Amino acid sequence: MIYTVTLNPSIDYIVHVDDLKLGDLNRMTADFKLPGGKGINVSRILKRINAESTALGFLGGFTGTFISDWLTREKIQTNFTPVGEDTRINIKLKSDEETEINGLGPTVSNEEMQNLKQILSTVQADDIVVLSGSTPASLRKGFYEELIQIVKEKKTDFIIDTTGADLLNALPQEPLLVKPNNHELAELFNVEFQTIEDILPFGERLLTNGAKHAIISMAGDGALLFTPTGIYQSNVLKRPLKNSVGAGDSMIAGFVGTFAKNNDPIEAFKWGIACGSATAFSDDLATADLINELISEVVVEQIR
């Protein structure tokens, strides 16, 4: 089983406004609400590629009910930890430019943290745990490390998709996959990249520091896969870009859903590219039909 952990889920409220005028009355031209949170996105894409998962994390209030009901309708297994405060709402304002206003998230008590850790402690050695996204401000520092320790004690593989200190601290624990984009990788090591060649030593450093595989996404330049036996680059699929939210999560879903079946990182990378691209070309997360259409277009070449 694949378990996804989302510590700070959200309702993503997408609002379209033509010719936004700050300080004035604006009227929406369209709006819709979606379940948000990186691990939840992973679970939703896994369902589309016929890989089962169980979504874990903190949910509370009427906003949490909206998310759990949505996942139930999509026939995704869940085992969320209830919290006393409402799950946050993030506003995604789409006008001439895209503006995001993200909520802080609920206050999570020590008891609620312990309840989540208890649920996670039931994982087995042949499972994979995906830890994704930001943490509520109320969570104590190093909570990701506490979760990783539980996973390691169970001899379970894990993927972590976060940035900064949480990512650096996770590397010695040998994650199955890490997936910073090129900007996050540069920030992680306090460097600047001018070319793809500049990226390669720092992608390799992720493996030297403990990661088993690393994907570096590079927007219009495709993505790089770092493995113990070589470095690979994908092509860039061409369609009108509609949506940047969830593309990275979809890439992780494509990778882990495929890797869990065949243990082949190259094939898993191809499915990651197809899933991530399909979401970028969609208003919501990718559909199964578009993923299956794109997979035949993905080309991966070894570059070192």
Rank of each mutant, 00 (worst) to 15 (best):
K92W: 00
E74H: 04
F158Q: 11
E111N: 06
V83A: 05
I160H: 11
L177Y: 13
E85F: 04
I119Q: 08
A137E: 06
E146Q: 13
R73T: 10
S95W: 02
P82R: 02
F143Q: 07
N182E: 15
G64A: 02
L167T: 13
R140M: 10
N182W: 08
I119K: 08
V129H: 05
A186Q: 08
K141N: 09
L120E: 04
K117P: 07
I101G: 03
T87K: 06
N79V: 05
A125E: 10
R88E: 02
P82L: 01
P175K: 12
E97T: 09
V130Q: 02
R73G: 06
N182T: 14
K154L: 13
K155D: 14
V130T: 05
V151Q: 15
Q173I: 10
E85H: 04
V178R: 13
L168A: 14
E184Q: 13
N90V: 00
N181M: 12
L168P: 15
V123D: 10
P82Y: 03
P172F: 15
D86I: 04
D166W: 13
E98Y: 01
P136T: 03
E74W: 05
L104I: 04
T81Y: 01
N110F: 08
Q149M: 14
T107N: 10
P175Y: 12
H183E: 12
E112T: 05
L168H: 14
P175F: 12
V129C: 03
Q173V: 12
M113Y: 07
K117Q: 07
L171F: 12
N79L: 08
G84F: 04
F158H: 12
D161T: 14
I76M: 01
N182C: 14
P180H: 13
L147K: 11
A186E: 08
A125R: 07
I119Y: 09
T122M: 08
E111G: 09
L131I: 05
L176T: 14
T156H: 15
M113K: 09
D157P: 13
D86V: 02
F158S: 11
L168F: 12
A125K: 08
F80W: 04
S121T: 07
T81V: 06
